[in-house]
Amino acid sequence: MIQKDEMKKLAWVARIAVEEKDIPEFQEKINAKLASYAAIADAPVGGVKKTVNPSRLNTVLRKDTAAPSMSAEDALKNAPEVYETSFKIPKIL
């Protein structure tokens, strides 16, 4: 179960601003989820391989060749702020 300080840390790692008053509700609901996951505690997984996705395809790397891609103009079309051909963001420090 996560504690209040851990909850605040999780919100920071997720980069989602959560108001102080909402922290207890977030903590309570995430802990309720974690409690429901006790159902897998007894799953007999010793020596079992993991499944990352259900595709039965063998992963084959494609050739590293250039192909047409989205234009810079299209890629920037939805950006809140643009500088020449780049996304512009507020100062970092």
């Binding site: 897998i40 007999p44 997984v45 079992v48 391989k49 993991k50 499944t51 259900p54």
Partner: peptide
């Protein structure tokens, strides 16, 4: 305990 175990349990389910 959670994510890896879920991926392994997914194999059991399949």
């Amino acid at each position: 305990d959670y994510y890896m175990k879920s991926m392994q349990t997914r194999t059991l389910i399949i």
